[in-house]
Amino acid sequence: MIRHLPPSRYRFPDPRDAEGDLVAVGGDLAPSTILGAYRQGLFPMPTDHQLGWWSPLDRAIIEFSDLRISRSLSRSCRRFTVVENQSFEDVISECAHVRRPGGWITPAFIDAYTDLHNLGWAHSIEVHDRDGELVGGLYGVQIGGFFAGESMYHRVSDASKVALVHLVGRLAESGGHLLDVQWQTDHLRVMGASVIGRDAYLDRLAEALQGGPVFGETSLGPVPSAPVIPEKGEN
C-alpha cells in the first residue's frame, strides 16, 4: 500500500535551464527528495563522490508498441516464471553487485530504494527458472502512469530481457503512459528503446504523472519552497 509522504526539504533547478545532463548536486536520498526529483524529470546517480541529479538532454524511453521481441526471446519468455515485488532487495543487490562494470548502486542507494519499495513506490520484476531460482530482474519507481526503470540484471541469458517484456506488458495493459530508461545503450536499443529531447520528455512526463497508477495508488505531498540544491558549478 502506498504511504503518503511529507514534502522534501529541497527543490530542484528547472532542468530545462541546464546546459548538460547534470542538473544539480547535493541533497539527500530521502523518499520525498527522490520522488520530487522524478516528478521534475531528474534521477539520482553519484558523480565525483557527490550525489548528482541528472536529466539527460537525450532521454531514452521505450514506447510500448516499439518493444522488439525476437523469436528466441519469445521462446525464453515461456521458459521462465515472472513475479512482481517478491524479492526487491535481492534484485537491487544483484544490480549493485561489484562484478558489474560501471556499477554505481551504493549501499546508500540500496537502502533508499528499499525504503521506497517498503513505502509502495519502488517495484521489482523477478524472473525465476524452472527450478525456482531467481535468475534475473529489474527495479524502478512508479508515480502515476510513469515508470522509471533504474537497473536490471541477469544470471542466465535473456532473463533481464524477459523482465523488461513483462514490465512493458504490465504497463500497457494497466494504463501506463511512459517508460523512462534514462540513457540509450546497445542493449536497450536492441529491445526497441528510442531517444527524445529533454523538453519533449518533460512534456510527456507531465502527462504521464496525471495517469492512473499501475502497481497501486500513489500520493505525494505538495512541493514546498525550500533550499535549492545548487546547480553544477555553483558554490
Rank of each mutant, 00 (worst) to 15 (best):
F80A: 01
F80C: 08
V98Q: 09
L164S: 01
T81A: 13
R100K: 09
A163P: 13
N85L: 07
V82E: 04
L164T: 00
V83M: 09
L134N: 00
T114L: 07
S93G: 13
G145E: 03
E84Y: 12
G120E: 13
S124I: 08
L167M: 06
L167T: 02
V127T: 12
M152A: 08
Y113P: 12
R99T: 03
S76T: 13
S72V: 11
G149Y: 08
R100T: 01
G144C: 11
V135T: 03
P107W: 04
S93H: 09
R79G: 00
S76M: 15
I92E: 04
I143T: 12
E133W: 00
E94C: 15
R78N: 03
V82R: 04
Q86E: 15
E126S: 09
V141L: 15
A108F: 04
V165N: 12
E133R: 13
R79A: 09
R130L: 14
K161D: 01
A112S: 03
Y153E: 14
H97D: 11
S124E: 06
E150G: 02
F147R: 15
D158G: 08
V165P: 10
S87T: 10
V168D: 12
E150M: 14
L119Y: 04
G149E: 15
V127R: 06
E94H: 13
V98R: 15
E94P: 04
S160V: 01
R75K: 15
G120W: 04
V82Y: 05
A108T: 11
D115R: 14
L134I: 05
Q142C: 09
D90Y: 10
I110H: 01
P101N: 10
V141A: 06
V82M: 05
G140H: 04
P101L: 01
S93A: 11
N118G: 09
V135I: 05
S124V: 04
P101S: 02
I143W: 08
H154Q: 14
E94V: 12
W104T: 14
F147I: 11
